[in-house]
Design a protein around this nucleic acid. Structure first.
Lengths: 209, 209
DNA sequence: GGTGCTCAGTGATAAAGTCACATTCAACCG
DNA sequence: CGGTTGAATGTGACTTTATCACTGAGCACC
C-alpha cells in the first residue's frame, strides 16, 4: 500500500476512497519550483514526504523564507488562493525529493462539506500557519540578527555542517548576504563556527546553550 | 431590525436564526482590551461595526500592529485558538465603539457543517489574513521606514490631522519611538508635515504621490 | 595552466535601533 | 493665577543593519 497523507487517514473509508480517486499524485525533485508569485492555483497540495520551502521576493530583489512544509503538512496558502481565485504571492521551492497529492477544488469542497474531522484539521493547519507568520514578524521586527543566525544554525545542524551559502542564509533570515558574511566571520574569529565555501559548521561547544 | 454581520446574511433563514440565537451580542468601548496574549478563546468574534486593532508584544517590550478588524470582519486568530485549544499570542484593543457577535464553538461547528457559503467565507477570510501578514513581513524586512511612515500617514489622513503620539506610531510600524520622532522632525523640516503634541498633520502637497 | 563562474571578504557610508537624559507641554490643584 | 506633575517629544552618542562598490578565492571545465 502506498504512503498516504495523515489528513486522509482520518476520513471514513468511503470519503477517503473518493478523495484518493480525485487527487493527483505528484513527484517533485529537489530544485523544482512548485509555484511562483502570480501563478494561479490548481488545487490543494498535500505533502506526503519531502520538504518544500515557501519564500517571498521583496521589491528590492531580496527574498525571505516564510516557512517550510514537511510530511503531512498542506499548503495553506493554496486554500486562500483557491477561495479568492487570485494568484500566489509567494513561491515554493522543493528542497528534498517530495511526494504530494494535489486535491482539486471540487474534491476539497466535498471533503469540507462531509467531514467534521477534515474541517477541524484544515482549520488547525491554518491556525499553525498564522502562528508561524506571527512569530516570524516578531523575530524580524525585534530579534537581533546574530541571535537569529545562531539559532538557525543550531536548528539545522544535526551534528553535521550545514551545506549552505551565505546568500541562501541571507534569504533564510531576510537580510543581505554581506551582513551574513560579516556575522559568520565574527563567529569564526570567536571560535563558534568553522567556515568553508558553501559550508558552515557550528562547533560542538556552541550547540548547547 | 438590528444590524447584522454580512457573514450571517448569506445563510438560509433557518440556520441564520439558529446562529443568531446562539451568538452573544457584545458592546465594546474604545480602549477596551478584547483579549491579551495567553488568554483562552471563548468563541469566534464577528465584528459588526467599529474597529479593533490586533497587535503583538515583543520580548523587548516593543509592540507591533498586525492588522485591524472592521465591519463584517471576523477574528481569524480566534479560529486557530479554538481549534488548537491554546491561548492567543496577540492582543486586541478596541479603537472605536464596537459591536460584535461572539459565536460559540459549537454553533460555529454547526455552521461550518451545514453551509458551503459560510465555509467559503471563513476560508476566504483566513486567506486575507495570511496575505496581510505576508505583506507585513515584506514591509518590515525590506521596506524603508521613512516610506512606511509616510504611507501610514497618507492612509490614515482623511484630510484631517492624525491624533496619535509618536509612541503609538512606533507600535504601528514596529519600531522605536525615537526613530519615529526623528523621522517626523525631518519631515517637518522639509515641510511635509506639521507637528503638535499628539497630532501629526500631513500637509496637502504630500497627500498625492 | 588558463578562463570563467559562483562564492566570500571588506571598506565606506547611510539607515535604523538603543540608551540616557534634557526639554516642553498640558492638565490639574491649591 | 503660578506651581507641580506626568506624559510626550527632542537629541547626542553609540551600536547594529543595510547598501554600494569592489576585490579576492575556490572550483569546474576546457
Amino acid at each position: 500500500m502506498t504512503a498516504q497523507h495523515a489528513l486522509l487517514e482520518c476520513l471514513p473509508a468511503g470519503l477517503r476512497a473518493e478523495a484518493e480517486q480525485h487527487a493527483q499524485r505528484i513527484h517533485l525533485s529537489a530544485g523544482d519550483v512548485v509555484f511562483r508569485a502570480g501563478d494561479g492555483c490548481r488545487g490543494l497540495p498535500m505533502v506526503i514526504s519531502g520538504s518544500v520551502r515557501v519564500q517571498m521576493l521583496g521589491a528590492s530583489g531580496h527574498g525571505i523564507v516564510l516557512y517550510r512544509m514537511g510530511p503531512d503538512d498542506l499548503c495553506t496558502l493554496s486554500i486562500g488562493c483557491l477561495m479568492a481565485g487570485r494568484g500566489y504571492r509567494a513561491e515554493a521551492h522543493v528542497e528534498e525529493p517530495t511526494e504530494a497529492l494535489l486535491m482539486p477544488r471540487q474534491a476539497f469542497d466535498r471533503l469540507m462539506a462531509q467531514s467534521a474531522e477534515f474541517r477541524q484539521q484544515i482549520m488547525a493547519s491554518y491556525g499553525r500557519r498564522l502562528d508561524d507568520l506571527m512569530l516570524l514578524v516578531e523575530e524580524i521586527a525585534f530579534g537581533r540578527l546574530d541571535q537569529r543566525l545562531l539559532e538557525w544554525l543550531k536548528a539545522h545542524a544535526n551534528g553535521r555542517p550545514a551545506l549552505i551559502t551565505h546568500q541562501e542564509l541571507a534569504v533564510e533570515l531576510g537580510t543581505a548576504r554581506e551582513v551574513v558574511s560579516r556575522l559568520l566571520k565574527d563567529f569564526e574569529r570567536h571560535g563558534r563556527v568553522r567556515l568553508a565555501r558553501g559550508r558552515v559548521e557550528l562547533l560542538q561547544s556552541q550547540e548547547v546553550d
